[in-house]
């Protein structure tokens, strides 16, 4: 599954030497990670290790204090979520970031509404598009008219995923996409990740479940206390190796990717 990273050309994303601190606490401390097309990179670590914070620098939710971001080898300026979207970076947040009072279509197109020639929002067309994509992602989805607060956890998750997938993402960030899901839905997300990967997307996957990491990821970058412990090729290590990295903060000998 994994290839040697040296001869794969330019990474899709390179986060180089990123630092960000909040009130004197270094949430992310000189971390460098990268991501290639068609690859899933797991980001692991305890709660508060800095995974979500690091990734929010890429999605534009936070502004890093120091460091550089390269997209396809070019330096990128990401100051806000709009900039990130312009680089085809889509994010599925742990909280899902849905407006509970709006329906699925309004959430899917939030910030990128389809409009009529007169400049009004085209609800009918947005709903039609939503039905199309949901038909592919979650064929059982029916509640197109209800506000998303009336949906189940899995349905809400599929709205959030549809939002990321619909706009032709090249880089996908998933923050614990299966944390609130049942086994069946988790399987659906796993299949989707495989499918998107086959389409050549690069995916950053924040995940706590080691089992999922071993199953879904090509490489894993482990963080502890805001610092990068190391990055390994998943099929060259065992569960215990990765757990050791998370808990002890030590990279096993000779497996660094």
């Amino acid at each position: 599954m994994s290839q040697s990273t040296e001869n794969r050309g330019t990474p899709l994303v390179e986060l180089r030497d990123i630092s960000i601190s909040f009130g004197g606490i270094k949430a992310v401390d000189h971390v460098t990670v990268d991501l290639y097309p068609g690859e899933v990179v797991g980001l692991l670590g305890h709660n508060g290790a800095g995974k979500s914070t690091l990734i929010k620098c890429l999605s534009g939710a936070y502004q890093m204090d120091a460091g550089e971001i390269f997209i396809n080898g070019d330096k990128a300026e990401i100051r806000n979520p709009r900039d990130a979207r312009a680089y085809n970076i889509e994010t599925i947040y742990q909280t899902l970031a849905l407006a509970d009072n709006l329906d699925a279509a309004s959430n899917l197109f939030l910030g990128r509404e389809l409009v009529t020639p007169a400049g009004f929002v085209d609800d009918a067309r947005m709903e039609a598009e939503t039905r199309k994509i949901m038909g592919r992602l979650n064929p059982n989805f029916r509640k197109f008219k209800d506000p998303v607060k009336a949906l189940s956890g899995g349905q809400r998750q599929s709205v959030a995923i549809a939002r990321a997938v619909y706009f032709n993402a090249k880089i996908l960030i998933m923050d614990e996409p299966t944390a609130a899901l049942g086994p069946h839905e988790t399987q659906m997300v796993a299949e989707l990740i495989q499918e998107l990967k086959a389409q050549g997307l690069g995916i950053f996957l924040i995940e706590h479940d080691i089992h999922n990491v071993m199953k879904l990821c090509d490489r894993a970058s482990v963080m502890k206390n805001g610092q990068l412990v190391g990055t390994v090729n998943v099929d060259e290590v065992t569960d215990e190796d990765i757990l050791g990295m998370i808990i002890l903060g030590k990279t096993p000998e000779g497996v660094s990717a």
């Binding site: 899902l96 849905l98 959430n107």
Partner: peptide, 16 residues
């Protein structure tokens, strides 16, 4: 306006 009222963080993360 309604999205921000429903979830200000979501609105912000959607680039509003």
């Amino acid at each position: 306006i309604f999205a921000t009222g429903g979830n200000p963080d979501a609105a912000e993360l959607s680039g509003i």
